[in-house]
């Protein structure tokens, strides 16, 4: 089985190009490319990396790519995978951003972006709703949600500090009240 730097890079480059609109389309894409076509990992392995990718800070798609790349070929594989997944995004944005600078001052473009700005507010609301469904499971998580919201919205506390405080709160809380079932889940979510 070919696991060269170039093959790994090319496979993730394809995934990175087909990944549109973010969200969780990464899972079926990786299933088709890595499990079905290349046979590099099995479905259970992919689900495990999906869960792991969410338990590490940063962008989930990048995390998953690095996990899989590292499993295939160690550090070289990890580098090939992350370069593959990032390159299409990087090139696409540079291209669009450069073009945008030329046209952004035009009146009708301004109007389009005014409308799109409203669409973005909806997308952020929908993303919040989706995260809510996955993360608010009991009274404690509800309290954390509102504390983070108030600290950020009313007091403009830095997001990093809020994340650090929530980690501390979670660990202290679990020392008092141990959990019943595991939280790191796979594709079942």
């Amino acid at each position: 089985m070919d696991k060269s730097f170039y093959t790994i890079f090319k496979t993730f480059l394809k995934v990175g190009t087909m990944l549109l609109g973010g969200g969780y389309v990464i899972l079926p894409l990786l299933q088709s490319e890595l499990v079905d076509k290349k046979g590099w990992i099995d479905s259970d392995g992919l689900c495990e990396y999906y869960a792991l990718g969410q338990s590490v800070p940063g962008i989930i798609a990048a995390n998953m790519s690095i996990f899989v790349g590292y499993k295939l070929r160690g550090q070289i594989g990890a580098l090939a995978a992350v370069l593959g997944i990032v390159t299409p995004a990087f090139l696409a944005i540079i291209l669009v951003a450069a073009m945008l600078e030329e046209i952004v001052h035009l009146n009708f473009i301004q109007n389009i972006f005014w409308g799109v700005g409203i669409g973005v507010i909806l997308l952020v609301f929908l993303a919040t709703k989706e995260m809510w469904n996955k993360s608010i499971v009991d009274k404690f998580t509800c309290i954390i949600f509102f504390s983070a919201f108030i600290l950020s919205a009313c007091f403009k506390v830095s997001p990093a500090l809020i994340i650090i405080l929530s980690i501390a709160a979670g660990i202290i809380y679990r020392k008092q009240i141990p959990e019943k079932n595991s939280i790191i889940k796979g594709c079942s979510e």
Partner: peptide
Amino acid sequence: KNVKAAIYALKPAGCGLLAAVA
């Protein structure tokens, strides 16, 4: 256990931050 506890609290905090942006 600590990793699980951290993730358990991280997710709602991240959600609260995004709600504030919205």
